[in-house]
Design a protein around this nucleic acid. Structure first.
Length: 278
DNA sequence: ACCCGCACCTGTAAGC
DNA sequence: TGCTTACAGGTGCGGG
Protein backbone atom coordinates (compact mmCIF):
# COMPACT_ATOMS: atom_id res chain seq x y z
CA UNK A 1 0.00 0.00 0.00
CA UNK A 2 2.10 2.82 1.20
CA UNK A 3 4.61 4.56 -1.00
CA UNK A 4 6.70 7.53 0.05
CA UNK A 5 3.85 10.08 0.37
CA UNK A 6 1.81 7.78 2.59
CA UNK A 7 4.81 7.03 4.81
CA UNK A 8 5.66 10.72 5.02
CA UNK A 9 2.05 11.47 5.97
CA UNK A 10 2.25 8.87 8.70
CA UNK A 11 5.46 10.46 9.93
CA UNK A 12 3.94 13.93 10.06
CA UNK A 13 0.70 12.84 11.70
CA UNK A 14 2.48 10.66 14.21
CA UNK A 15 5.10 13.16 15.34
CA UNK A 16 2.94 15.31 17.64
CA UNK A 17 1.66 12.20 19.39
CA UNK A 18 4.98 10.54 20.09
CA UNK A 19 7.87 12.98 20.18
CA UNK A 20 8.99 13.44 23.76
CA UNK A 21 6.72 10.69 25.10
CA UNK A 22 8.15 7.99 27.31
CA UNK A 23 7.49 4.38 26.37
CA UNK A 24 6.56 2.61 29.58
CA UNK A 25 5.84 -0.70 27.92
CA UNK A 26 6.64 -2.17 24.51
CA UNK A 27 5.53 -5.59 23.40
CA UNK A 28 5.62 -7.67 20.25
CA UNK A 29 2.40 -9.65 20.16
CA UNK A 30 3.72 -11.51 17.12
CA UNK A 31 7.43 -12.11 17.36
CA UNK A 32 7.97 -12.89 13.69
CA UNK A 33 6.95 -9.36 12.70
CA UNK A 34 10.00 -8.03 14.54
CA UNK A 35 13.39 -8.71 12.95
CA UNK A 36 16.42 -8.18 15.08
CA UNK A 37 16.03 -8.10 18.82
CA UNK A 38 12.41 -8.11 19.92
CA UNK A 39 13.17 -7.45 23.57
CA UNK A 40 11.26 -4.63 25.25
CA UNK A 41 14.50 -2.64 25.46
CA UNK A 42 15.17 -2.98 21.74
CA UNK A 43 11.58 -1.79 21.19
CA UNK A 44 12.47 1.36 23.17
CA UNK A 45 10.79 0.43 26.43
CA UNK A 46 11.95 2.90 29.06
CA UNK A 47 13.04 5.40 26.42
CA UNK A 48 11.67 8.74 25.40
CA UNK A 49 11.07 9.12 21.67
CA UNK A 50 13.42 11.71 20.29
CA UNK A 51 12.77 11.84 16.57
CA UNK A 52 10.92 10.31 13.62
CA UNK A 53 12.94 9.72 10.46
CA UNK A 54 11.89 8.65 7.00
CA UNK A 55 14.05 7.15 4.29
CA UNK A 56 12.19 6.18 1.13
CA UNK A 57 9.19 4.14 2.27
CA UNK A 58 10.67 3.34 5.65
CA UNK A 59 10.08 5.07 8.94
CA UNK A 60 12.63 5.32 11.74
CA UNK A 61 11.69 5.85 15.38
CA UNK A 62 14.68 7.05 17.37
CA UNK A 63 14.82 6.87 21.14
CA UNK A 64 16.78 9.18 23.42
CA UNK A 65 18.93 6.21 24.38
CA UNK A 66 20.04 6.06 20.74
CA UNK A 67 18.12 2.93 19.74
CA UNK A 68 16.15 2.95 16.50
CA UNK A 69 13.10 1.07 15.31
CA UNK A 70 12.68 0.91 11.55
CA UNK A 71 9.14 0.30 10.35
CA UNK A 72 8.35 -0.86 6.83
CA UNK A 73 4.62 -0.84 6.16
CA UNK A 74 4.70 -3.22 3.19
CA UNK A 75 1.28 -3.36 1.52
CA UNK A 76 -1.10 -3.21 4.44
CA UNK A 77 0.89 -1.92 7.41
CA UNK A 78 -0.37 0.89 9.62
CA UNK A 79 0.98 2.84 12.58
CA UNK A 80 -1.96 4.05 14.61
CA UNK A 81 -2.31 5.99 17.82
CA UNK A 82 -4.25 4.12 20.44
CA UNK A 83 -6.71 5.21 23.04
CA UNK A 84 -6.65 3.23 26.26
CA UNK A 85 -10.38 2.74 26.22
CA UNK A 86 -10.53 0.87 22.98
CA UNK A 87 -9.61 -2.69 22.12
CA UNK A 88 -6.82 -3.33 19.69
CA UNK A 89 -7.89 -3.69 16.09
CA UNK A 90 -7.35 -7.05 14.42
CA UNK A 91 -3.82 -7.84 13.26
CA UNK A 92 -2.16 -5.58 15.81
CA UNK A 93 1.34 -7.01 16.08
CA UNK A 94 3.35 -4.52 18.15
CA UNK A 95 2.14 -2.25 20.93
CA UNK A 96 3.85 0.69 22.64
CA UNK A 97 2.27 2.27 25.71
CA UNK A 98 3.14 5.78 26.79
CA UNK A 99 3.46 7.39 30.15
CA UNK A 100 0.51 9.79 29.99
CA UNK A 101 0.78 11.59 33.32
CA UNK A 102 -2.59 13.23 33.79
CA UNK A 103 -3.04 14.56 30.29
CA UNK A 104 -6.45 13.24 29.34
CA UNK A 105 -6.25 14.45 25.77
CA UNK A 106 -3.06 12.75 24.80
CA UNK A 107 -2.40 9.48 23.09
CA UNK A 108 -2.01 6.44 25.31
CA UNK A 109 -0.01 4.38 22.88
CA UNK A 110 1.07 3.42 19.44
CA UNK A 111 0.14 0.32 17.45
CA UNK A 112 1.64 -1.42 14.47
CA UNK A 113 -0.93 -3.47 12.62
CA UNK A 114 -0.44 -5.25 9.33
CA UNK A 115 -3.04 -7.74 8.09
CA UNK A 116 -0.98 -9.07 5.20
CA UNK A 117 2.27 -9.02 7.13
CA UNK A 118 4.41 -7.97 4.17
CA UNK A 119 5.71 -5.23 6.39
CA UNK A 120 7.73 -5.48 9.55
CA UNK A 121 9.73 -3.84 12.29
CA UNK A 122 13.51 -3.88 12.60
CA UNK A 123 15.36 -2.91 15.74
CA UNK A 124 18.84 -1.38 15.78
CA UNK A 125 21.13 -0.19 18.55
CA UNK A 126 21.77 3.10 16.76
CA UNK A 127 20.93 5.27 13.78
CA UNK A 128 24.32 4.35 12.34
CA UNK A 129 23.36 0.69 12.33
CA UNK A 130 19.97 1.38 10.78
CA UNK A 131 21.56 3.41 8.01
CA UNK A 132 24.30 0.94 7.33
CA UNK A 133 22.09 -2.12 7.32
CA UNK A 134 18.94 -0.82 5.66
CA UNK A 135 19.16 2.69 4.29
CA UNK A 136 22.53 2.97 2.61
CA UNK A 137 21.46 0.57 -0.11
CA UNK A 138 18.57 2.81 -1.16
CA UNK A 139 18.81 5.19 -4.10
CA UNK A 140 18.38 8.96 -3.80
CA UNK A 141 15.17 10.23 -2.23
CA UNK A 142 12.53 10.66 -4.92
CA UNK A 143 11.38 13.94 -3.35
CA UNK A 144 14.68 15.62 -4.11
CA UNK A 145 16.07 13.67 -7.04
CA UNK A 146 17.92 15.76 -9.62
CA UNK A 147 18.18 15.08 -13.30
CA UNK A 148 21.78 13.94 -12.89
CA UNK A 149 20.85 11.75 -9.90
CA UNK A 150 18.25 10.07 -12.05
CA UNK A 151 20.61 9.63 -15.01
CA UNK A 152 23.10 8.00 -12.69
CA UNK A 153 20.45 5.77 -11.14
CA UNK A 154 19.28 4.53 -14.52
CA UNK A 155 22.69 4.49 -16.17
CA UNK A 156 23.21 1.97 -18.89
CA UNK A 157 20.15 -0.17 -18.27
CA UNK A 158 18.12 -1.41 -21.19
CA UNK A 159 15.25 -2.41 -18.94
CA UNK A 160 11.90 -0.70 -19.18
CA UNK A 161 11.92 2.60 -17.40
CA UNK A 162 9.04 1.75 -15.07
CA UNK A 163 10.71 -1.42 -13.78
CA UNK A 164 13.71 0.62 -12.75
CA UNK A 165 11.64 3.34 -11.10
CA UNK A 166 10.13 0.68 -8.85
CA UNK A 167 13.54 -0.51 -7.64
CA UNK A 168 14.25 1.16 -4.30
CA UNK A 169 18.00 0.83 -4.76
CA UNK A 170 17.68 3.05 -7.86
CA UNK A 171 15.15 5.63 -6.65
CA UNK A 172 13.75 5.53 -3.13
CA UNK A 173 10.05 6.09 -2.63
CA UNK A 174 8.17 5.25 -5.81
CA UNK A 175 5.65 2.40 -5.96
CA UNK A 176 3.16 1.38 -8.59
CA UNK A 177 0.88 4.40 -8.28
CA UNK A 178 3.44 7.18 -8.30
CA UNK A 179 5.64 5.52 -10.92
CA UNK A 180 2.71 5.62 -13.36
CA UNK A 181 1.81 9.17 -12.34
CA UNK A 182 5.39 10.43 -12.72
CA UNK A 183 5.77 8.87 -16.16
CA UNK A 184 2.49 10.36 -17.34
CA UNK A 185 3.40 13.84 -16.17
CA UNK A 186 6.77 13.57 -17.89
CA UNK A 187 5.20 12.26 -21.10
CA UNK A 188 7.40 9.16 -21.04
CA UNK A 189 6.01 5.71 -21.84
CA UNK A 190 6.53 3.13 -19.08
CA UNK A 191 7.70 0.71 -21.77
CA UNK A 192 10.66 2.80 -22.94
CA UNK A 193 14.12 1.42 -22.41
CA UNK A 194 15.79 3.41 -19.66
CA UNK A 195 18.92 4.06 -21.72
CA UNK A 196 16.88 5.53 -24.56
CA UNK A 197 15.77 8.63 -22.67
CA UNK A 198 17.02 11.95 -24.00
CA UNK A 199 18.56 14.38 -21.48
CA UNK A 200 15.48 16.56 -21.67
CA UNK A 201 13.20 13.62 -20.93
CA UNK A 202 15.41 12.68 -18.00
CA UNK A 203 15.06 16.18 -16.60
CA UNK A 204 11.27 16.12 -17.11
CA UNK A 205 11.02 12.77 -15.40
CA UNK A 206 13.12 13.81 -12.41
CA UNK A 207 10.98 16.93 -12.01
CA UNK A 208 7.76 14.92 -12.31
CA UNK A 209 8.92 12.46 -9.67
CA UNK A 210 9.73 15.28 -7.26
CA UNK A 211 6.47 17.12 -7.91
CA UNK A 212 4.26 14.06 -7.64
CA UNK A 213 5.86 12.82 -4.42
CA UNK A 214 5.97 16.23 -2.76
CA UNK A 215 2.44 17.24 -3.65
CA UNK A 216 1.05 13.83 -2.73
CA UNK A 217 2.81 14.08 0.63
CA UNK A 218 1.24 17.49 1.18
CA UNK A 219 -2.17 16.06 0.35
CA UNK A 220 -1.78 13.27 2.87
CA UNK A 221 -1.10 10.54 0.30
CA UNK A 222 -3.66 8.56 -1.70
CA UNK A 223 -6.45 6.47 -0.21
CA UNK A 224 -7.93 4.38 -2.98
CA UNK A 225 -10.71 2.47 -1.31
CA UNK A 226 -12.13 2.42 2.15
CA UNK A 227 -10.20 0.09 4.41
CA UNK A 228 -7.21 1.43 2.54
CA UNK A 229 -4.42 3.65 3.71
CA UNK A 230 -4.92 6.02 6.65
CA UNK A 231 -2.45 8.15 8.59
CA UNK A 232 -1.64 7.79 12.29
CA UNK A 233 -4.87 9.60 13.20
CA UNK A 234 -6.90 7.22 11.07
CA UNK A 235 -7.53 9.85 8.41
CA UNK A 236 -7.40 9.11 4.67
CA UNK A 237 -5.40 11.14 2.17
CA UNK A 238 -6.84 13.15 -0.69
CA UNK A 239 -4.32 12.83 -3.49
CA UNK A 240 -6.43 10.08 -5.09
CA UNK A 241 -8.44 12.96 -6.60
CA UNK A 242 -5.30 14.16 -8.38
CA UNK A 243 -4.34 10.83 -9.93
CA UNK A 244 -4.29 11.19 -13.70
CA UNK A 245 -3.65 7.64 -14.83
CA UNK A 246 -3.51 5.17 -11.96
CA UNK A 247 -6.80 3.29 -11.71
CA UNK A 248 -8.14 5.04 -14.82
CA UNK A 249 -7.45 2.47 -17.52
CA UNK A 250 -10.05 2.81 -20.30
CA UNK A 251 -11.06 6.29 -19.15
CA UNK A 252 -10.11 9.40 -21.08
CA UNK A 253 -6.76 11.11 -20.80
CA UNK A 254 -6.97 14.41 -18.92
CA UNK A 255 -4.53 15.93 -21.40
CA UNK A 256 -5.57 14.72 -24.85
CA UNK A 257 -8.97 13.12 -24.25
CA UNK A 258 -7.90 9.83 -25.80
CA UNK A 259 -8.41 6.46 -24.16
CA UNK A 260 -5.91 5.45 -21.48
CA UNK A 261 -4.31 2.06 -22.02
CA UNK A 262 -3.88 -0.55 -19.31
CA UNK A 263 -1.70 -3.62 -19.35
CA UNK A 264 0.65 -5.62 -17.16
CA UNK A 265 4.28 -4.63 -17.10
CA UNK A 266 6.28 -7.23 -15.23
CA UNK A 267 3.25 -8.34 -13.25
CA UNK A 268 2.30 -4.83 -12.25
CA UNK A 269 -0.87 -3.24 -13.49
CA UNK A 270 0.19 -0.24 -15.58
CA UNK A 271 -1.83 2.64 -17.02
CA UNK A 272 -0.58 5.16 -19.55
CA UNK A 273 -1.68 7.36 -22.43
CA UNK A 274 -0.44 6.01 -25.77
CA UNK A 275 -0.71 9.49 -27.29
CA UNK A 276 0.90 11.61 -24.59
CA UNK A 277 3.46 8.95 -23.66
CA UNK A 278 4.72 7.66 -27.00
C1' DA B 1 21.37 -8.78 -17.58
C1' DC B 2 16.81 -9.32 -17.87
C1' DC B 3 12.23 -11.07 -17.37
C1' DC B 4 8.94 -14.28 -15.57
C1' DG B 5 6.56 -16.77 -12.19
C1' DC B 6 5.73 -17.32 -7.84
C1' DA B 7 5.75 -16.71 -2.84
C1' DC B 8 4.74 -14.26 1.36
C1' DC B 9 -0.57 -13.09 3.64
C1' DT B 10 -5.40 -11.31 4.14
C1' DG B 11 -9.30 -8.80 2.50
C1' DT B 12 -12.36 -7.25 -0.90
C1' DA B 13 -14.91 -7.17 -4.99
C1' DA B 14 -16.48 -9.16 -9.11
C1' DG B 15 -18.41 -13.04 -11.46
C1' DC B 16 -21.25 -17.01 -11.61
C1' DT C 1 -27.11 -15.66 -0.72
C1' DG C 2 -23.36 -18.33 -1.26
C1' DC C 3 -19.03 -20.01 -3.46
C1' DT C 4 -14.97 -19.25 -6.39
C1' DT C 5 -11.68 -16.49 -8.47
C1' DA C 6 -8.82 -12.56 -9.35
C1' DC C 7 -6.55 -8.91 -7.71
C1' DA C 8 -4.32 -5.37 -4.47
C1' DG C 9 -0.30 0.00 -3.01
C1' DG C 10 5.72 -4.13 -1.61
C1' DT C 11 9.59 -7.03 -1.85
C1' DG C 12 12.65 -11.12 -2.86
C1' DC C 13 14.08 -15.40 -4.86
C1' DG C 14 14.91 -19.18 -8.17
C1' DG C 15 15.02 -20.33 -12.87
C1' DG C 16 15.09 -19.89 -17.83
Amino acid sequence: MPELPEVESVRRSLAPHVIGRRVVRARARRRDVVRGKASPGALLEGDRIRHLHRRGKQLGIEGEGGGVIVVHLGMSGQLLTADRSRRYPSHTHVVWKFDDFDDLQSTRGLLFRDPRRFGGVWTFPSLEHARRERWDELGPEGTEISSSDLSRALAGSRRRIKSLLLMQERVAGLGNIYADESLFRAGVSPWRQANSLEPEEMADLARSIREVLVSASDRGGSTLSDEGYVNADGEPGSFQDELRVYGRGGASCVRCGGELAQDRLEQRSTVWCPTCQP
